[in-house]
Design a protein around this nucleic acid. Structure first.
Length: 572
RNA sequence: GCGCCAGUAGCUCAGUGGAUAGAGCGCUACCCUGCGGAGGUAGAGGUCAGAGGUUCGAAUCCUCUCUGGCGUACCA
């Protein structure tokens, strides 16, 4: 059994350079100076090696030596080895490192051994993480903007899993606030209309047509038993059933988008004491009160965040005695971090909520003492366009484009990938006309096509009696073959990057680059007009070796697609 | 007004203080009796919004200005 390496290759190479630097210090070739954490990076230009270190440039000041002299001192203690070739020094003070050919070849076997676990790292081993995302009010269908949150949150969760965390995906259901009152009133009006009553939707209610559909479903299911007397408010059960139906609809939409959750967390449950104990709300507010973070003023109860550096205080309990959503948020984060004890909690919010970030962070720190564990990820809003025309995203505007409609038009894979390509912090335009018109040119197909081609080659080889088993990877020496392996070896580093920056777009861009490497590899024979460069050739040993490369590439590409929640088709 | 996020190729966008700033789409020219052409190769296209500053080195960090999005409720 081969030992599984769960650090990244970058860390391994970096450790070699750091060791060499320390050896140079011990030998007196270099003054004893502190080393930075990261000593190697991936150079932009492959001509500068697989990894490069700018350590000499960075140490020049503290070591009081010219960068090139430092580079030579380090390089002298950095011999060629199993992993890297002899280093090259490049002005003004870089040490360029190339992976040893034998090492690159051997990694093919290791990737096949690891199979679907290839690229797992141990960054989060033993830690529990929670990613909460979408969490839209259950008062209407999900729109396109929610899709961005779903793609980001789900992929982030997958990347954290690959990084070793135990991850829970959670949807926070706002079933307790004033918006659900408005929802219930609107639904009740539509429900009454179903029974021929002349009632209008209340001022400020939800005008959308979906409320009519919802009322019809309610009518079909429950008949007229939810009708109250004239002038009476909607019965509580109607609200419950309405929210239930809406949550079901949202769950269906997300499943159709390829996203499912471990847990649907009810806001209302924060106010319900668990078996004779105090509720999460009482516990959290009690902590704040005990620590002197609450003050009564103007008949309301305030979180005195201005004493903690915030520009103003925030109401937790209104003068009419009803808690605000902020109060729920405090209790919710206490539950996440203290009651459930997650080591890492990521909230994925749309930019329309960014005004809440600092106060929730502050309150979380106050109530848990562990604010560091919370990371609130803000994604900028999606501007929806039809050609040049901007479509507003709002449940209250006339036209809303639902996530269902988007999935219907472009498919879940393309929709997810489109969202994942953009950094969360970047505002993005989503041109519906373009998405439909150019769906065949969407980069999602570029990646999936590469996967289908890989599968096809293995199929064909199998039909002709070839198999990857027993192939000798040391026969693979062509540049386009080794370049493909090198590209695969980046995946653990990409996962580490996503799991530490919480920015899933790196995965999407990497997917394109890996597919590009494969397409270039696969078309080399055609470009060079040389049939001996094909995978399946007259040479059985070479064929078997190349099939191992193809098998490994299929594993790597399949992993990337899986992390993004996309299908990895065997044929298209 | 104040705060947060952004401004990079014609368009949509990547870019972890390092070497000649990239991709897709669009455009130009090539490569098919094709292990799947939804592909490959090459090319044109840039004042990294502007001005200062920090640094051996800045698209990246800091300050200011301009432009856009969002927020700034006892709404969510």
């Amino acid at each position: 059994m081969t030992e599984t390496t769960t650090t990244t290759l970058r860390d391994r190479v970096g450790a070699l350079v750091a060791e060499a630097a320390r050896a140079a210090m011990q030998a007196g070739a270099l003054p004893d100076v502190a080393l930075p954490d990261d000593v190697v990076e991936r150079p932009r230009d492959a001509a500068n090696g697989d990894y490069a270190s700018s350590l000499p440039l960075r140490l020049a000041r503290s070591a009081m030596m010219p960068p090139l002299a430092i580079a030579e001192a380090i390089a002298a203690h950095l011999p060629a080895g199993e992993v890297i070739q002899a280093p090259e020094i490049a002005p003004p003070g870089f040490i360029n490192l190339r992976l040893a050919e034998g090492f690159v070849q051997g990694e093919i076997d290791r990737i096949i051994e690891q199979g679907p676990n290839f690229a797992d790292i141990s960054l989060g081993t033993g830690k529990h993480a929670q990613v909460e995302f979408v969490s839209a009010n259950p008062t209407g269908p999900l729109h396109v903007g929610n899709g961005r949150g779903a793609a980001i949150g789900d992929t982030l969760a997958s990347a954290l899993e690959a990084a070793g965390y135990e991850v829970e995906r959670e949807y926070y259901v706002n079933d307790a606030g004033t918006q659900t009152d408005v929802f219930a009133e609107t639904l009740y009006a539509r429900y009454q209309q179903q029974h021929g009553l002349d009632v209008t939707v209340p001022e400020g209610g939800y005008p959308g047509e979906y409320m009519v559909d919802l009322a019809r479903r309610l009518h079909d299911r429950e008949g007229d038993r939810l009708l109250a007397g004239p002038g009476e408010p909607p019965p509580p059960e109607l609200r419950e059933l309405g929210i239930e139906l809406m949550v079901e609809q949202i769950r269906d939409t997300l499943e159709g988008f390829g996203t499912s959750y471990e847990r649907w967390f009810s806001e209302r449950s924060l106010y319900e004491p668990a078996s004779g104990e105090t509720s999460a709300y009482d516990t959290a507010l009690g902590t704040l009160r005990a620590d002197g973070h609450l003050a009564e003023r103007e008949g309301a109860l305030w979180f005195t965040s201005s004493e903690l550096g915030e520009d103003k205080d925030n109401v937790v309990l209104r003068s009419d005695g009803r808690p605000t959503y902020f109060a729920s948020d405090i209790a919710y984060h206490h539950d996440k971090l203290v009651t459930r004890g997650f080591d890492l909690v990521i909230d994925v919010w749309g930019a329309d909520h960014h005004g809440h970030v600092s106060r929730v962070e502050m309150a979380t720190e106050a109530v848990t003492g562990n604010g560091e564990a919370l990371h609130i990820l803000i994604y900028q809003l999606v501007t929806l366009k039809r050609g040049a025309e901007t479509v507003r995203l709002s449940k209250r505007s006339g036209e809303i484009i639902t996530l269902d409609e988007l999935v219907e038009e472009v498919g879940p894979d393309a929709a997810r990938f489109f969202f994942l390509l953009r950094a969360p912090s970047s505002q993005m335009d989503f041109d519906l006309d373009l998405a439909v018109k150019q769906s065949n040119e969407n980069p999602v197909y570029y990646i999936q096509y590469a996967h289908a081609r890989l599968a096809s080659i293995l199929d064909r080889a199998s039909g002709e009696g070839h198999a990857p088993e027993g192939g000798d990877v040391s026969l693979l020496t062509a540049p386009h073959e080794l370049a493909l392996v090198r590209e695969m070896l980046r995946l653990p580093e990409v996962i580490e990057l996503v799991a530490t920056t919480y920015e899933p777009q790196h995965l999407a861009h990497y997917g394109i680059e890996l597919a590009t490497s494969f397409h270039a590899f696969n078309d080399a024979f055609r470009q060079q007009n040389d049939a001996s460069l094909k995978v399946i050739t007259d040479d059985p040993a070479l064929t078997a070796a190349r099939l191992r490369l193809v098998q490994a590439a299929k594993i790597a590409l399949g992993r990337v697609l899986d992390l993004m929640g996309m299908t990895a088709p065997e044929r298209m």
